[in-house]
Write a protein that binds this DNA or RNA. Structure first.
Lengths: 184, 184
DNA sequence: GTTACCATGTAACTAGTTACATGATTGA
DNA sequence: TCAATCATGTAACTAGTTACATGGTAAC
């Protein structure tokens, strides 16, 4: 079976919701996948076009009077098949996430400790504010949505974000202390 | 001050060690930065060329009899300055790491729970083997290197990897349980 | 003579962002 | 009339990988 980029599968997945236009897809991503996936218009529109060429989706122009025309996409059975097939495959390999803070830290012997401490502190602040964002979204979901199956999967992704962020904060603190006390 | 890509700074950083050729840089990355940074030859050689053009490094051809010639690069004072300046800047913004497993999970209501459970299990296995790798490297370092300042920074990056991986494993377990018990 | 390692490099390709261009509708 | 929102799209650019091409040396 032919394989596509993960972004293609993401769009395939979104087309199972009632987001059917490029514009709506972008909104969906910005609202719901924002913490682990981003796509720009510059990629969405060309991808939608290629989905049609590949026979994974069909397009239909919908004109609502008083609103701009839009291209509404919907999955073909081949598209649904492709999505399901991708869902059950284990991931190709654990990604090596490029990490800017680790890269800086790795070479930080070339700068005074105080500067490295400031770097860590600033990073920690960013992480903490990210954690708060996740917690707030989680709150909002559990409050306003019922605990349906759909919601559960959504919450999984937020829980992941929270756990990873928390671990990173703890690492920051540990590294900070070590730097302070080591070799003074 | 002009800015460069993180990969450029990575190479700048490596040139402060005694890795001076493209080949040696690749080896260094594969051995020491491997868990949070990867670069291919296809990027190293062009980057080295541009470092020289930008006045950040100088190149010198070294011929050792009985060995192939190599291009040895060394940082100029401008190069050192650029590296130090980058080191002290806080990171631009927390990266949104694209996460394939979360993407799949987000759309997993479209497949039977058993398949999602298998997916999580396979992911967890990968994470656990990664954790072991980190722990082994950590062991090797603390055993054979003294606890000099250089080593400390290296250990920070490994500690980060271990903490994040551990948190991810725990998330896997929690999600697995939730999936099993929720709405049976 | 063949395998492993040392060493450099490019061309084609994939993925993705940013900036730009266009234009309609709605509401203040 | 002006800003916000809805809506689609492309061109230029950046970053990066993969596959290929080349060739020397060392050890078995």
């Amino acid at each position: 079976m032919k394989t596509y980029s993960d972004t293609t599968y993401a769009i395939l997945g979104i087309l199972t919701t009632d987001c059917r236009s490029g514009y709506a897809i972008k909104q969906f991503i910005d609202q719901s996948l924002h913490h682990f996936w981003k796509i720009s218009y510059g990629q969405i529109y060309p991808t939608l076009k290629s989905l049609v060429e590949e026979g994974l989706a069909e397009v239909q122009i919908s004109s609502t009077p008083g609103k701009p025309d839009k291209n509404e996409y919907s999955l073909t059975s081949k598209g649904k098949e492709t999505l399901k097939n991708w869902l059950e495959q284990p991931i190709k390999q654990l990604p090596v996430e490029r990490n800017e803070i680790l890269l800086k830290l790795f070479f930080s012997r070339h700068q005074p400790k105080e500067k490295t401490l400031l770097l860590l502190e600033s990073y920690k602040k960013d992480l903490e504010s990210r954690f708060q964002t996740y917690a707030a979204i989680e709150q909002a979901i559990t409050k306003y949505h019922d605990t349906s199956a759909d919601t559960m999967y959504w919450l999984f992704t937020l829980d992941y974000g929270k756990r990873i962020t928390k671990a990173a904060v703890e690492w920051c603190e540990a590294a900070f202390d070590k730097l302070l006390h080591e070799g003074v």
